[in-house]
Simulated assay, not measured.
Amino acid sequence: MEVFFTFLKLGMISFGGPIAHIGYFRAEFVGRRGWLSDSQFGQLLAICQFLPGPASSQLGFCIGLLRAGWLGALSAFLAFTLPSALLLIAFAAALPMLSGPMGAAAIHGLKLVACAVVADAVLGMSKTLCPDTPRKTIAFFALAALLSMSSAIVQLIVVVLAALAGVLFLGNISIPGNETKIQISLGPRVGGILLLLFAALLIGLPIFSSPSPTLESVAGVFYRAGALVFGGGHVVLPLLQDSVVATGWMTPDQFLAGYGGAQAIPGPMFAFSAYLGSVLSQGNATWLMAATALIFMFLPGFLLVTGVLPLWRAVSHNPAAGRAIAGVNAAVVGLLGAALYNPIFLSGITVSSDLAIAVVAFGLLAIGRLTPIAVVAWCVVACIARLWF
């Protein structure tokens, strides 16, 4: 219960995205409660940043696992995710009611929030993930490939080729780590089983693909997205867009409105999956569909991190692994840049005043460093005020 209520508090106050979440976690678990040392916290963070998936949620899952075993890990996930998931399910239920001029303006404002937030993410990630010419080159070719032909298969091919390019061309880039031992009861055998389960689900779930959003097909789509996301929650956008918008499961307006609404709530960005599941249900078994999307979005990241924990010491000393992940991270910048253009810019910017509102919103984030809530408020209020001018 201690783990559950500690993470529940964090789930209700942790605004600002994964980087901010990591700051909250360190203050709570290293500074205030002493559950971990700084070195242990740093090594867990390195593992979670090395793997695909939601880094802050994976970190919380690991902290819960170390503190109270599997029950602690599940409690950490549920408590940290529940507030944001419930808010987004409620937003999905309210979306059809926003049909008048003011409602339509508010929804359009949320689409402009997505423009500003993703542009800020591309700028920030390009500085940290593409600091040299080889990585800028990988990002450029990834951007060009995805602008030319965007699909989930192409994205997977780009990620694989970027990892190979990293191994071949990025020199001696090592994976961050340290020698402090993480006290974990899982052995290499359990870790291997979890990694095999991760791979089996990734290969097996597409068998249940369907032209309509059934529980099985939704599970496969969200599992694949969660398994292939490097670089944070914003990067899941193009993967999910190809899976639920390009297939006709939902409209671009529904997708981008939910993404914009997700900027105004605390907790993990991956909770956006609960909103998408609610919309895909079309009023039938809404809670079951939302829970399926949510669970399968987070599941691959949790399987990977718990599978790698017992094996981390050997992996962390392999320079080739560090070069591969550096190449993938560079490609992520190109992937997100492609998503910024299509569907975000093309769907959100329809008139010149849209561009002006989005530019101001970007300035509030990138220069003013205001919270996403302030950006949501600006975009929504500006779009509603435009009705009277």
Score class of each variant (00 low, 15 high):
E2S: 14
F4T: 05
F5M: 07
F5N: 04
F7E: 02
L8Q: 01
S14I: 10
G17E: 11
P18Q: 05
G23K: 08
R26L: 03
R26T: 02
F29Y: 15
V30Q: 11
R32F: 03
L36A: 09
D38F: 15
Q40Y: 12
G42S: 13
L44P: 07
I47D: 00
L51P: 09
A55R: 01
L59K: 10
F61Q: 05
L66Y: 14
A68N: 10
G69A: 08
L74N: 03
L78V: 10
F80H: 01
P83F: 01
I89C: 09
I89V: 15
A93H: 12
A93K: 13
A94C: 07
I107V: 07
I107G: 01
K111R: 11
L112N: 01
V117W: 07
A119K: 07
D132R: 02
P134I: 15
P134E: 14
A139L: 14
A139Q: 04
A142K: 08
L147W: 10
S148N: 02
S150C: 11
I153G: 13
I157R: 10
V160D: 05
A163C: 13
L164N: 00
A165M: 14
G166M: 14
V167T: 07
F169C: 14
L170P: 07
L170A: 10
S174A: 13
G177T: 15
K181N: 06
I184N: 14
S185F: 01
L186Q: 09
R189F: 03
G192R: 04
I193C: 12
L194C: 14
L195H: 08
F198S: 09
A199T: 10
A200I: 06
A200V: 05
L202A: 11
L205S: 07
S209G: 09
S209T: 07
S210E: 03
P211V: 09
E216K: 12
V218R: 07
G220Q: 08
V221S: 13
G226E: 06
A227K: 07
L228Y: 13
V229Y: 01
G233H: 11
G233P: 10
H234V: 13
V235K: 11
V236N: 02
D242A: 12
T247K: 02
W249V: 04
A257G: 07
G258L: 08
A262K: 00
Q263D: 07
G267A: 06
L276Q: 11
Q282E: 12
N284I: 03
A285F: 09
W287K: 05
A291V: 03
L294A: 03
I295H: 06
I295Y: 09
L304D: 02
T306A: 15
L309M: 09
P310V: 05
W312S: 06
R313I: 02
V315P: 07
A320E: 12
N329M: 10
V333K: 11
V333Y: 12
G334C: 12
T350K: 15
V351N: 03
V359I: 15
V359C: 12
V359Q: 06
V360M: 03
L364Q: 03
L364D: 01
I367Y: 05
P372I: 00
V376E: 04
A377G: 01
C379K: 06
V380H: 08
A382W: 03
I384C: 13
I384V: 15
A385L: 01
R386K: 04
F389N: 00
